[in-house]
Amino acid sequence: MDAAFYIASVVAIGATVLTITRTNAVHALLYLILSLLAVAVAFYTMGAPFIAALEVIIYAGAIMVLFIFIVMMLNLGERAAALERRWRTPGMWRGPAILAGLLLIEVAYLLLRAGNATGAAQAVEPKQVAMALFGPYLIGVELSSILLLAGMIGAYHLGMRKIEEMREEHGTHIDEGRVVASGDLVHAGADRADRAP
């Protein structure tokens, strides 16, 4: 059973290293998803199926979708389409696919094996997690909400811009029904090449 944990861990570390070293934002995100999935498998092998499910649903699911939405929204226009074609170079899918395949085989093996699926001495059920969170760790739950509030207020203040400023900056482009892609996450620079030397 240790072997399953170590394989998942190695996949997680490898995927994270690849996330950091990719120069292309979308490729990096792909590896980040893989890394989160691998962590979920690691949780599963340690007897925490509930946390593993949360990891997949919240991180690999919701948060990653948000990331990808933002990257996509920043890339409107024709140049972005050309860029996207360039991203889909043959072969770029191989790395993530191999790592994901490893994880898939591992999960399939764990699930198909007879007996206790997680293999750990005892599995932590959702009920136990809930009892802990709303029992001794009640204050911790409240503190997490304060933490999120602080993050939200900070993000609101730093992200807020005056409406006049935005009109000045984007006015003409908004009329054309397009958004300037300057300052985005990706090295797209969709409209920058037209104007910049």
Binding site: Y137, I139, G140, L143, S144, I146, L147, A150, G151, I153, G154, A155, H157, L158
Partner: peptide
């Protein structure tokens, strides 16, 4: 450790902003 880390993060995140 849980309150240690949560308290520290609340402090740090507010401080960034």
């Amino acid at each position: 450790f849980a309150s240690f880390f949560l308290g520290l993060e609340i402090l740090s995140i507010s401080l960034y902003a």
